[in-house]
Amino acid sequence: MGVTKEQVESSLTSKLNPSHLEVIDMSGGCGAKFSIVIVAEQFEGKRLLERHRMVNGALAEEMKEIHALSITKALTPEQWKQQQESEKSQAAA
């Protein structure tokens, strides 16, 4: 029962080819609740709603067993780079 973090990662990796991916199991290993940060080239030119739909679509099978999925970030590599840099400069300030 339940979905593993590895399953979620492998589905997302094979379908969306992310350049950066963080999957966190927030249900203490139960596989019921995940939080995702995903950076992918394919998000380019797509609205947030469409990006979330792509992630949901990639996890269609897993979603049957996942209770809650929180997509904290769905960014393009460009946006991700910008965010990393601004975080860095904030930390330095």
């Binding site: 947030l48 709603l49 979330h52 929180s70 997509i71 904290t72």
Partner: peptide
């Protein structure tokens, strides 16, 4: 129109 779920609403 469908706007989104929780994450999208929070983001917006």
């Amino acid at each position: 129109e469908f706007f989104g779920g929780c994450d999208i609403t929070v983001e917006a």
